[in-house]
């Protein structure tokens, strides 16, 4: 049994909040650079240049790339041989978010009651997904999720007979309806299978995979490639101004499901698709 003191968790989460918001991940930067070459629309190339320049300004000044520094989504893999000491794990993660958003000059975008809508003032609570795993470590993945793209996401309980064509239709419809709103070029996270909530979590998790990595499963990889191709035929383009680069990737995660069901969730993420992880 390994002991991990909560202060270490707090410090780690604090840093992840700032780093995820300040620094563009390499896979996205590479995708931006690549699309600068392939994008046919002049005005969209100008947008892509702005996004590269914006990432440079943000990292140089250590300020967030986007003013929507998101709601903090945390995936925590807790090794079952770990004993958390000095406090409560969930509270430690929230304290890390609280400190990271305050010290990092990040925007506090969380409201307490969804109808009364008073800002909590410290960007807590985080949305935390726990997973118990083998080992004596704690892996924390932090994904600050902006709502420009979150609002364009959707979930549908398809019938098994809808099959692969039904999935394609729903994903493309969702991206098409989103149009310019989620700050394209987007990353499309798709969750297929499980139950309603599992599909949604899978779609969120799918956003954590690098945009240049395809699924290990053959038929899923083929579906990812085909969907990306179809999405980039929609003509939405960077910032939605009309162009070829509507999405950088379609990442699909699957899970066993019920004989009667085919849940599909589409979680859209903006061109920054921010996430950072640390292992304690």
């Amino acid at each position: 049994m390994r002991e991990i003191f909560v202060s270490e968790i707090i410090d780690t989460v604090e840093k992840l909040c700032m780093d995820a918001n300040y620094y563009l991940n390499k896979d996205i930067r590479d995708a931006l650079e690549k699309s600068l070459v392939t994008e046919e629309s002049e005005i969209c190339r100008a947008v892509l240049k702005e996004l590269v320049e914006n990432a440079n300004v943000a990292s140089n000044l250590q300020v967030p790339m986007c003013q929507d520094t998101g709601m903090a989504v945390v995936f925590a893999e807790v090794g079952q041989d770990v004993h958390i000491t000095g406090g409560n794990l969930t509270e430690a993660i929230n304290e890390g978010v609280r400190r990271g958003y305050e010290k990092g000059y990040l925007r506090k975008s969380v409201v307490e009651d969804p109808l009364i809508r008073t800002n909590t003032g410290d960007n807590t609570p985080a949305i935390i997904h726990y997973n118990i795993v083998d080992g004596d470590f704690l892996r924390i993945i932090l994904l600050p999720k902006g709502f420009g793209s979150e609002n364009m996401s959707a979930l549908k309980m398809l019938k098994p007979s809808d099959g692969i064509e039904g999935i394609k239709k729903f994903v493309i419809e969702t991206v098409s309806t989103a149009g310019p709103n989620p700050c394209p070029p987007i990353v499309v996270g798709v969750g297929v299978g499980g139950t309603m909530e599992m599909a949604a979590i899978l779609a969120k998790k799918a956003l954590l995979r690098e945009v240049d990595k395809r699924s290990d499963t053959n038929h899923i990889r083929d579906l990812e490639i085909e969907l990306l191709d179809e999405i980039n035929k929609l003509g939405i383009g960077p910032a939605g101004l009309g162009g070829r680069t509507t999405a950088f990737a379609v990442n699909i995660e699957v899970y066993p499901t019920h004989i009667a069901g085919l849940p599909v969730a589409v979680n859209i993420s903006c061109h920054a698709t921010r996430h950072r992880e640390a292992v304690i």
């Binding site: 702005e50 914006n54 300004v57 300020v63 986007c66 903006c270």
Partner: peptide
């Protein structure tokens, strides 16, 4: 008018 979504650090200049 449209400003580029996500170019917040640049726009602040």
């Amino acid at each position: 008018f449209g400003a580029t979504g996500g170019a917040a650090a640049l726009i602040a200049n």
